[in-house]
């Protein structure tokens, strides 16, 4: 059985889509909810707990989506930039390091 991951959903607005297209990463997006584009950045249970501790305003939606929601846009922008820089969705360890320095 695949290990459960707890995504942070980076919803793709025009600005983000342009950056992804420029980096040749537009294919990383999934289409969900009637065409809405998202980059789902996976977290382990440990990473999820660390993120919720660092950003207490964030919420793990236990009831419906099992995703980490309500991170401030500025925080999600940083995660997004890291995804573009590394051309990978596996960025959470590095992101957490920058936040706990």
């Amino acid at each position: 059985m695949a290990e459960e991951t707890y995504p942070i959903n980076l919803w793709i607005n025009e600005e983000r889509l342009e950056k992804l297209q420029q980096a040749g990463l537009a294919g990383m997006c999934k289409e969900v909810l009637a065409g809405l584009k998202v980059l789902a950045v996976p977290n382990t249970a440990e990473q999820r707990d660390t993120i919720l501790k660092i950003f207490p305003m964030a919420k793990f939606d236990t009831a419906t989506t099992k995703s980490i929601e309500l991170l401030p846009k500025a925080v999600k922008d940083k995660i997004f930039d890291l995804v573009v820089k590394k051309k990978s969705l596996s960025v959470m360890d590095e992101f957490i390091k920058t936040q706990t320095k």
């Binding site: 980076l10 919803w11 939606d61 995703s67 929601e69 309500l70 846009k73 999600k76």
Partner: peptide, 9 residues
């Protein structure tokens, strides 16, 4: 909650 997150983005 997810919709709030979309709007915040």
């Amino acid at each position: 909650t997810m919709i709030r997150s979309i709007i915040q983005d």
